[in-house]
Amino acid sequence: MDLTVVLGILGAITSLSLGDSLEGGNPIHLVHITSLIIIFPTAMLASMVATDGEYVKGAYKNLGFVFKKNPVDLHARIKQIIELATLARREGLLALEQKVAQIDNPFLKQGLSMAVDGNEIDTIHETMERVIEETEEFWHGCAHYWIVAGETSPVMGLVGAVMGLILALQKLDNPKEMAEGIAGAFTATVTGIFSAYVVLGPIGSKMKAKSHHLVKEQQLMLEGIIGIVHGDNPRTLEAKLLNFLSPMEEKHSQFD
């Protein structure tokens, strides 16, 4: 589980509740069922209008991706590629045929299959670059859905507040009920802003950020495939692939 997501949301709720409590309020009063119904479903449905159906489906199907740890292990992927490069350099590309069948990553499997089949480097590069572009476009579209939902939420909160005020003003003959109605109306504004900047919007941004790891892995694999076809020295190829690691990651060579 990605603790930055869970702790971020829970921490935001806690700090908001603590601030309200210190001012003598009761955080439970901020939870207004009507406001939740008006804002969340409406914002997500409105976001569907601005998003292609394929990406809407992908946004929900891959929602769990936001809460999971980064599935990409570049160190392990580099090690795998260097092992394949060593075998290819020693025994030739055809020696990879049996190994390719055992690869579970579709991108790497496709690229190496093209190499084993004797395709030119330019053909492999052009084909796999298209796959990378489509991957990037797909995840951008899925993330965009949640980002648009987040951008819509504050407006839906305002709509909910206005609707609540209209109903509250109809109770002028009962000041107590009118005051309760006004208080309930303003919870819609709070809910709308909260959902935009703590839940829906951040979910989209996190999905987009995590997808960059998937794209980087594909770029690394493509560089590795091209190196294997070129017959690059495994040590030299490894040094090139290690440059894909972020400055926060230590670069360990398996040849040391």
Results as ranks from 00 to 15, higher is better:
L200K: 00
V190A: 09
P175K: 11
G184N: 13
T191F: 04
L172V: 14
A196L: 10
K171E: 14
S205H: 10
L167R: 05
P202E: 13
E180H: 08
A188S: 15
V199R: 03
V190I: 15
A179S: 12
S195T: 13
K206S: 05
G201D: 08
K176Q: 14
D173M: 10
G184F: 06
G204V: 04
Y197H: 14
S205V: 13
V199G: 03
V198Q: 05
L172C: 12
L172H: 09
K171M: 07
I182N: 09
A183H: 10
E180W: 02
I203Y: 03
V198H: 00
K171W: 01
A196N: 13
K206W: 01
P175W: 00
F186H: 06
A188Y: 01
E180S: 10
I166V: 14
M178A: 14
G181T: 09
E177A: 15
M178D: 07
G204F: 04
I203G: 01
F194A: 11
K171H: 09
A185C: 07
P175Y: 01
V198E: 05
V190D: 04
V198S: 00
D173L: 01
V199K: 02
T191G: 08
K176N: 11
F186N: 13
K176H: 11
S195A: 14
S195L: 15
I203H: 01
L167I: 08
I166P: 02
K171L: 11
Y197E: 13
F186W: 10
F186Q: 12
F194Y: 14
T189S: 12
A183D: 12
G184M: 05
S195H: 04
A179L: 10
L167M: 06
G181M: 06
Q170T: 05
M178F: 06
N174F: 01
K206Y: 04
K206F: 03
G201L: 07
A168Y: 02
Q170W: 09
T187E: 04
P175V: 15
I166M: 10
G184R: 03
F194W: 04
P202N: 10
T191S: 05
G204D: 09
L167F: 04
L172N: 12
L200D: 00
Q170Y: 04
T187Y: 01
V190Y: 03
V190M: 11
T189G: 06
A188P: 03
T191E: 07
L169T: 15
P175Q: 13
F186Y: 12
P202S: 00
K176C: 02
A188R: 06
I193Q: 06
I193A: 12
